[in-house]
Nucleic acid binder design. Sequence first.
DNA 1: CCTTATAGCAACCGTTTGGTTGCTACTGAA
DNA 2: TTCAGTAGCAACCAAACGGTTGCTATAAGG
Lengths: 109, 109
Amino acid sequence: MDTPDLEAVAQEVFAALADPSRRGILAALAAGGPATATDLAGRLRISRQAIAKHLVLLAGAGLVVAEPGERRRVRYRLESTPMKVAQQFLAALARDWDGPLAALQNRLS
Amino acid sequence: MDTPDLEAVAQEVFAALADPSRRGILAALAAGGPATATDLAGRLRISRQAIAKHLVLLAGAGLVVAEPGERRRVRYRLESTPMKVAQQFLAALARDWDGPLAALQNRLS
DNA sequence: CCTTATAGCAACCGTTTGGTTGCTACTGAA
DNA sequence: TTCAGTAGCAACCAAACGGTTGCTATAAGG
């Protein structure tokens, strides 16, 4: 209802952002724009397959979308909306904690 | 650059919040106030030692602080400040992604 | 003293995870 | 057709993770 699968999205975003390699991929995409797994493997020091696995996870979390391009190339583009959901989740959590009457109030906006 | 050790704090918070048991512990603390590991083990369905390990990790992330009480009891209390840091981290990330100029600005290598 | 209840270690175990290597399939150019 | 480049799939491996059981130590109450 008020908390649909917001927690599920937040969990996936947290798990995705908890890994340094994944954050490196996201940073590379943010710095250089959409790129392929092979391209990303060239910039980072891990193999293309490892990148591909991370991209699958990131796509599962919605942080990245696959854009099939010409000549069998697949470019990945950043998507910021799930991160905003996670941000709201954090804000709601912090709000509940800071209220010393958190146990009494159960309302969510 | 403009990313101090903010990323380190964010990583620990993300890793801590990615686990359902850990979120359960935090929810229990938010609902019932500060509690001991033994007390938490009674509410959740995992052993006290598992709780204790999670509390060590949560304390490492700063999400929880240990308060030694009377009779060798140790109560754990929530701390929301590191979550606000992670929130800022998410906000900064989303801001960079959404700005299509960010790619050009960071392309100075 | 003895009992009770708590916290802190320390192994141990099954599963997950991050990463590698190797192979196959498809596309476009020489 | 052959070749170079890229994506996808599948094992495989070492390390980390979440959780358990078992033990020790210490503090208060009988």
